[in-house]
Design a protein around this nucleic acid. Structure first.
Length: 495
RNA sequence: GGCCCGUUCGUCUAGCGGUUAGGACACCGCCCUCUCAAGGCGGAGAUCACCGGUUCGAACCCGGUACGGGCCA
């Protein structure tokens, strides 16, 4: 299919930070636009002045940038179809309202809210579909003028035409709505504000949007919007509605389910590449069975026809898996920079040589960058052999010899901290010397680990040797040796 | 209440009339390893929501029901 001049838009309301659901919508739009070498427009739908803030506006833009989803046109980038904030487009909406009014597609309505509510209750009581009864459609121009002159405030309603509205959804296929169920809806409120559906249509039309990709919560709006396009004599875009994201309990994903905004995930230390990869997989699947994709690969392969129609449960486990995968792919210096803020936040400071060691040592364990302090703590924690159940490991036969040998070898260190390759050499020396004395394998590694860290698990020993520091290394070996002498070889085994 | 949409392992999904219903996460086991991870290998896990129909044959097509979700107000 030819999609010449594809123009899509992502249109968030700045009433909160970027939600994972919205981010996925943005991603699908971005991928679709890029795939067809089209344009993505960012439009800020800030008509709800009470809840919209410029702080949210800014954070959404920042989060999109963080994900790598750059719009071609938008409030910050500019473009030929601006302004890109709805709050700055009142004139455009008003002009459209006047046009519809002049052409008989719309009419003023003076019905007070209380009356509307009352009629709705009556209709409901009779088991009818609540729908505006068109009282004000009967008003003559003279009556309208008189009431306006008398200072009465009017809302503007769209005169819904009869007949079905059918469209072929890009994801779901044909969907039909009967206009019988759609009452004459308001396009401009008595307070002067323009309704959501109306503003969206005027914007999509004037911004020459060709494809609207959005959440399924908008399917029913589509019928109204298509009527509006027809009335405005503008070609309607094609629509694609993707499913919504659910929480593990099957309900709508919300704050009470924990992290739901892109900002939350960024702070915890998820990588944008993992986020994008996870989000796209939530309801899209390639023709083969690959699971890992870069943004560029997605651009090449993304296809709305392969987007699933059923809602998807947000599964952090799979996100975690992907994040770990991407973390393990990082180069040391890159990882070092990424974990630095998390380490700093935990109050951990490291010497320059140590940083590389710590990053490398911790890499395979990380699920999120925020886990770094937890794993880096082997390098900073104090060791208290007496209160450590693992001190039993210090009494391994030959351990005292290993400590002495290590003490000797580490004493030759030319610097406080050593990079991993050099540290590894030292370890090898200790291992070789121990072997000469008939001590090998587990009997050298294990007691050494316990002596140096007071723990039984942790990164490979040479990282510890390079990153703990000569001073600490020697002090701990001496402590361990003293501990063994003091407690005797049998101690600890029985307790 | 009406109208729309959806329903395949716990989760994300493949499947588009004939398959031992495939993959991934999670789970379990084994290997690797001083340890924790990572990695490799393997296992278990789905009466394809249900009931009818069409067909020689249905997860795939049709109808209904149930359940879930969305929108309107």
């Amino acid at each position: 299919m030819s999609n010449d001049g594809v123009r899509v838009r992502f249109a968030p309301s700045p009433t909160g930070s970027l939600h994972v659901g919205s981010a996925r919508t943005a991603l699908y739009n971005y991928l679709f636009a890029r795939h067809h070498e089209g344009v993505m427009v960012l439009r800020i739908e800030d008509t709800d002045l009470k809840r919209s803030t410029s702080a949210h506006d800014a954070s959404i833009i920042r989060d999109l940038a963080w994900l790598g989803l750059h719009a071609d046109e938008g409030p910050n980038t500019g473009g030929a179809f601006g302004p890109y904030r709805q709050s700055e487009r009142a004139g455009i909406y008003e002009e459209a309202v006047q046009r519809l009014l002049a052409e008989g597609w719309a009419y003023p309505c003076f019905c007070p809210q209380e009356l509307l509510d009352e009629r709705k209750q009556q209709q409901l009581a009779r088991g009818q579909m609540p729908k505006y009864d068109r009282t004000c459609l009967a008003l003559t121009p003279r009556e309208i003028e008189a009431r306006l002159a008398a200072g009465e405030r009017a809302a503007i309603r769209f005169r819904v035409p009869v007949g079905d509205v059918t469209f072929v959804d890009l994801i779901h296929g044909p969907i039909t709505f009967s206009s019988d169920v759609i009452g004459d809806f308001i396009i401009k409120r008595t307070d002067g504000g323009y309704s959501y559906n109306f503003a969206v249509v005027v914007d999509d039309a004037s911004m020459k949007i060709t494809h609207v990709i959005r959440g399924e919560d908008h399917v029913t709006n589509t019928a109204r919007q298509m009527m509006l396009f027809e009335a405005l004599n503008e070609p309607a875009p094609r629509y694609g509605h993707h499913s919504l994201i659910l929480a593990p309990d099957g309900s709508k994903l919300s704050k009470r389910h924990g992290a739901t905004s892109i900002g939350d995930f960024r702070k915890m230390g998820y990588l944008p590449a993992a986020m994008v990869n996870y989000l796209v997989l939530l309801s899209w699947h390639p023709a083969d069975e690959r699971e890992k994709f870069s943004l560029d690969e997605l651009v090449a392969e993304f296809d709305l026809e392969r987007v699933s129609r059923s809602p998807a449960v947000f599964d952090v486990q799979k996100l975690n898996w992907l994040n770990g995968l991407y973390i393990r792919e990082l180069g040391v210096s890159e990882l070092q920079d990424l974990i630095a803020p998390h380490l700093a936040e935990a109050g951990m400071e490291f010497a320059p040589v140590q940083r590389e060691t710590v990053a490398e040592a911790v890499q395979a364990n990380l699920v999120v960058l925020g886990d770094a302090p937890q794993y880096a703590s082997v390098f900073t924690d104090r060791v208290d052999l007496a209160s450590c159940p693992c001190s039993e490991g210090l009494f391994t036969p030959g351990a005292d010899v290993v400590f002495a040998l290590a003490r000797e070898v580490f004493g030759t260190m030319s610097a406080e901290y050593l990079p991993p390759p050099q540290a590894k050499e030292l370890l090898m020396q200790v291992v070789a010397l121990a072997k000469e004395r008939g001590i090998k394998g587990k009997s050298v590694y294990h007691p050494l680990r316990v002596a140096l860290t007071g723990r039984e698990e942790g990164p490979e020993l040479f990282y510890l040797i390079g990153g703990l520091g000569k001073t600490v290394l020697i002090a701990r070996l001496e402590e361990a040796a003293a501990y063994v002498v003091e407690r005797g070889p049998k101690q600890g085994v029985d307790s």
